[in-house]
């Protein structure tokens, strides 16, 4: 799966976003890119913001992926948790999305 990661810029983050993404890169065997080239959206977009303001959650960013997971500080998809749990939840969500994509491809 091709995953695009978009950071918010981390001006005053509540979480260590690079640490979370590093963990992802070590754990997953997918292609993770930070600077997508071309207009074709990735299978998954991870928008990782340091706080709930989520200033980078914009339409032009959303267009970078077919589907997206949004992290807003300690919040992942409107669920509040610590960084360790957040990382685990993020991995779970990615795996579940992979499953969905695989079954969709099978149907096709």
């Amino acid at each position: 799966m091709r995953i695009v990661v978009k950071y918010c810029g981390n001006c005053n983050p509540e979480i260590n976003s690079p640490r979370i993404i590093s963990h992802l890169m070590r754990t997953l065997h997918d292609e993770i890119i930070f600077h997508p080239e071309g207009k074709k959206p990735a299978d998954l977009l991870i928008i990782i913001c340091g706080c709930r303001k989520a200033c980078v959650d914009r339409p032009d960013v959303r267009a970078m992926g077919v589907r997206a997971i949004l992290i807003k500080g300690r919040w992942i998809q409107e669920l509040s948790c610590g960084e360790v749990v957040l990382t685990r939840l993020l991995l779970q969500k990615i795996e579940s999305m992979k499953g969905k994509i695989a079954s969709q491809t099978k149907e096709m």
Partner: peptide, 10 residues
């Protein structure tokens, strides 16, 4: 500042 830095709730 606290207004500009506001965010959406569920």
């Amino acid at each position: 500042a606290c207004s500009y830095e506001g965010y959406q709730t569920p």
